[in-house]
Every structure is written in C-alpha cells, then in structure tokens.
Computed example of a mutant assay.
Amino acid sequence: MKKRKYEAEQTKQTIVEGAKALFAAKGYAATSMMDICEATGCSKGSIYHHFQSKEDLFLYLAEQAFTNSWQTWHEQSGGDHSATEQLYAYADYFVDTLQKPLNKAGEEFMIRVGADSEAGRRFMEIIQNYMKGFEDLVQAGLDSGEWKGESVQELSFIILSYYSGLSDSYHLMDKAAMKELFRKATTLLLDGIRK
C-alpha cells in the first residue's frame, strides 16, 4: 500500500512539474491537457485522477507558489527587525524571486476564467492570503509608529504594485543593479510614509 501511495505522489509531482514548465513557457491558454500528457508521459486519466481540470491544476500550482513564497520570506525575515528593515529585506527578496514562472500565466488565467467564476474566486483567495501576510508587515510599521497611513490594505497594495512595476525592468539589468534600484525605490517610498 505504501508503495502505491508513493508512486501516486511521484506521478502527481511529475504532472505538477511538467505543467508548471508548460504554463511558464506557453501560457495558460496555449497549454492543453494533451501537451501536459506529452510532457509528463502521463495519461489524461492519470492527470484527471489527481486534478479535476486544467483550472484545478493551475490553481494547485498557484497555491503552492504563493504559499511557498510567503513561507520562505517569513523564514528569511524572522527576528526582531523593525518594519523598515523588513521592508528593505523584502525588496531584496522580491528581486531574488523576480522570475516567477507563473506570473504572466496567472494574469492570463484570470482573464480567461473571469473574476466571478469559481476558479477566479479561488485564485483571488490565494492572492488575498498572500496579501494578508504582507499586510501584517505593513501593520507592524503602522503600529510601531514607523510609518503613516490610513489603510493597511491600501498601503500594502500600493507598495506591492510599486515593486511589481519596477520588476518589469528585470531584463534590462543584472540582479545586483536591480537590488540597488529596489533599495533606492524603497528609500523613496519610505520618505513618503515615514512619520
């Protein structure tokens, strides 16, 4: 029984890794279940045994990516650092994880399924859970009196949008230059929200 369970987990992992590579390379819409079968060597039946649909498979990947990303950040940022120090560290982490393979596919996924669909709502819930973690960092900055702001959600959204906009330049410079750009941008941002 244990061997069968292990083999099932291995098959699922093969499907997940193959699908992730395809979604990253081709996008969500251009990746078919047949493509995933060919890339993984798994039958459609095997894929549907683990995932109800292509949407379900993509949502699984998104949840893994966002949960793992936040857990990794949380482990790296631990300690008694001020919110300002943590924001600088988060900016470095953001640069370190810039080439997130599912970002563009996630945007396409939402356009394809629509925000009002069950899949769209599930995807937004994954994003909101990630945002909640970042909001805790921003709330710490507000609570400690380091930063000013009226709404933790609004300020969190502004900061993450700011970093996302900067990340569009990552093809134009190396990682060290990007980190320096993000550090300067963080200083500029903090000049606006520091008390």
Rank of each mutant, 00 (worst) to 15 (best):
E125T: 15
G114Y: 06
Q153T: 13
H171Q: 00
L181G: 04
A185R: 05
Y130N: 02
L137M: 02
L155C: 10
S117R: 11
T186W: 09
L189Y: 11
V113S: 01
D116F: 11
V152D: 08
A177K: 00
F123A: 05
G145Q: 11
L190F: 13
L137S: 00
M178H: 02
D116P: 06
M131F: 10
V138I: 00
N129C: 13
S117Y: 12
S144P: 03
S164V: 10
L102G: 09
V152L: 09
F109I: 03
V113G: 01
R112L: 06
K184G: 06
K132Y: 06
S144H: 04
I126D: 10
E154Q: 14
G106F: 04
E135A: 06
S167Y: 02
Q139D: 07
R183M: 02
D143R: 02
S151E: 14
M110R: 12
H171L: 03
S117E: 08
D143K: 05
L190N: 13
A185T: 00
G165Q: 12
E180R: 06
G145E: 07
E180H: 03
R122A: 15
A115V: 12
L137T: 02
G120V: 11
S117V: 11
V113R: 03
G114S: 08
S144T: 01
M110P: 05
Y170K: 00
D191S: 13
